[in-house]
Design a protein around this nucleic acid. Structure first.
Lengths: 111, 111
DNA sequence: GAAGTATGACGTAAACATACGACATAGTAT
DNA sequence: ATACTATGTCGTATGTTTACGTCATACTTC
């Protein structure tokens, strides 16, 4: 985001937008849902559960990891990904606060 | 999203991703916050409150409108935008459900 | 109706995202 | 060591978003 004027907005707005951006692709939503339910969270299993190439899934996994929503532990040859529950709940909380503030505040306009 | 394989995912995943995408730019977060608090919600006032050109803000407003998160009423020369409270709360609910499902389900993995 | 104003639509350049094949790496097993 | 397997990284083609200037439209006011 260098060409965008994103930096002209305040930190809270940027953080919320960044979080939303991570969730803005169905593959990443699907990965999170899969990790929450899966018995296994091995990278290869995630790839084969999704209609995308292994490479592309790996890329989406990296984005989720950069956002701290998931974490990966190497176990020999395989990598085991899990949801970072603490960070995930922080994300949940900040989005809920955003929605809550607006709901509370918005009285409907007089137009 | 025509070239993406988005359509390979299920409807719920696509809907969540679409919603997140709308919120994935700080300008659109800022517009929603502004509309919630503003005494006025006239298009021109929104533009001048943001560090972007009027044209760009108008584009962001259209995206929010396409997503049904806001609605605009023409009043003579000016256009008055407001949050579409009903749709906004639906969006809130579906995101909260997504987060909730994952929180409930994710017991931490055995890695 | 002429001039002015508030908007949206259109065109477009630059930045970014998506998707994936080919390659690199590192562990495992024979 | 050699072959195999699971992953990540790199390059790259294609599509999408962002940002904004310019133009078109439509209402207001003189």
């Amino acid at each position: 985001m260098t060409y965008t004027k994103a930096t002209a907005f305040d930190t809270e707005q940027q953080e919320l937008a960044r979080l939303a951006k991570v969730l803005s692709h169905p593959a990443r939503i699907a990965i999170l849902q899969h990790l929450a339910q899966a018995k296994s969270c091995i990278s290869g299993d995630i790839s084969s559960a999704l209609p995308l190439s292994r490479t592309t899934v790996s890329q989406h996994l990296q984005e989720l990891k950069n956002a701290n929503l998931i974490q990966g532990e190497i176990d020999g040859l395989t990598v085991c990904y899990c949801i970072n529950v603490e960070e995930f709940n922080k994300a949940k909380a900040s989005l809920e606060q955003f929605f809550g503030n607006i709901s509370d505040c918005c009285s409907g306009c007089g137009c």
